[in-house]
């Protein structure tokens, strides 16, 4: 698969996206949501404490909550941007022409995904001034900041790839969107819920024995849940207590990277393989 940085689909998609007022309205509402939260939190904290300043520890809580809000927004927006990448072309009857051009399937798929990712990155970058308010009050190290953004990027890349895959496999955008949102909810909510149940069951089975048992399933579920990973970043104790509970010493951020990067690669490979019909003789 040859990487072509001069990707016509990418440039066309970006051009179309930024000619539509919908994109700007989307950015506006994203920023309004972030601002309402940040200023609301600052106002509420100052009102409750009766002071006119912000302590570094409160600033860190704000950073944590802001990271969660951004994660939620990204998880919510990504399927909407990617799950129609190919199926909408099919519905608009532009796909057949696109597939008869000499662009490779990888170029088309990567162009579609990159344009959506580029828009999501723009949203994140547009939100940086809101984050800068947190820096203003201190309490956050640049490493925390980089870690959160790196893993946010990995997450949106994976969910975006899943969206493009469903969009390639499923003819109708609405069904593809439901499948992508379903996957996103499974990864971000259902895995967390099952993780709690698994831990409860493990604890219940060994009540009174005093011998903690290893729960690989619990550790895997913790490793693929974005909320648990972000919580472990924001609270060092959280990461340690998960290892204590599951009795698995493998860092969950490594498991997370392996799982989400594999999901990205597999989804993209399926998309590339299934975009065009196989003209070879069927056996």
């Amino acid at each position: 698969m040859k990487m072509n940085f001069n990707n016509p689909v990418l440039f066309k998609e970006l051009k179309l996206r930024f000619r539509s007022p919908k994109s700007f309205i989307g950015i506006l509402f994203y920023l309004i949501a972030m601002c309402i939260f940040v200023f609301g939190f600052i106002y509420a904290t100052m009102t409750v404490s009766g002071t006119s300043y912000f302590r570094p520890s409160e600033s860190f809580i704000l950073f944590g909550l802001l990271a969660f809000i951004q994660l939620g927004l990204v998880l919510f927006i990504t399927p909407g941007l990617t799950a129609g990448a190919i199926s909408s072309e099919r519905e608009k009857q532009t796909l057949s022409i696109l597939l008869t051009t000499s662009q490779s399937s990888f170029q088309i798929i990567s162009g579609k995904l990159s344009s959506s990712i580029a828009f999501l990155l723009l949203l994140i970058v547009a939100g940086l001034p809101v984050y800068s308010l947190v820096f203003l009050f201190g309490g956050i190290s640049p490493l925390d900041f980089v870690k959160v953004f790196l893993f946010l990027f990995v997450t949106l890349l994976a969910i975006g790839s899943v969206g493009v895959m469903f969009s390639t496999l499923i003819r109708r955008t609405i069904v593809s969107m439901i499948a992508t949102y379903g996957t996103m909810l499974f990864l971000s909510v259902v895995t967390g819920f099952i993780f709690l149940i698994v831990l409860q069951m493990t604890a219940f089975n060994h009540t009174g024995t005093g011998a903690p048992t290893t729960s690989y399933l619990g550790h895997i579920l913790a490793s693929i849940n974005p909320a648990i990973l972000f919580a472990s970043f924001l609270s060092q104790g959280m990461g340690d207590s998960i290892s204590e509970m599951t009795q698995v010493k493998f860092p969950i951020w490594i498991g997370y990277l392996i799982f989400y990067l594999s999901l990205t690669v597999i989804s993209l490979l399926i998309s590339v393989k299934k975009l065009r019909v196989n003209m070879k003789r069927s056996k």
Binding site: K92, Q93, L98, S102
Partner: peptide, 29 residues
């Protein structure tokens, strides 16, 4: 694909693209 030019019976166009940009996109493709 490099040897054929195909025009389907039903086809859509990208709204928000101008005629020359439309041709430019396919030329680049």
């Amino acid at each position: 694909r490099k040897m054929i030019g195909y025009m389907p019976d039903f086809f859509g166009v990208y709204d928000q693209l101008k005629a020359d940009e439309y041709l430019d996109f396919y030329g680049a493709s």
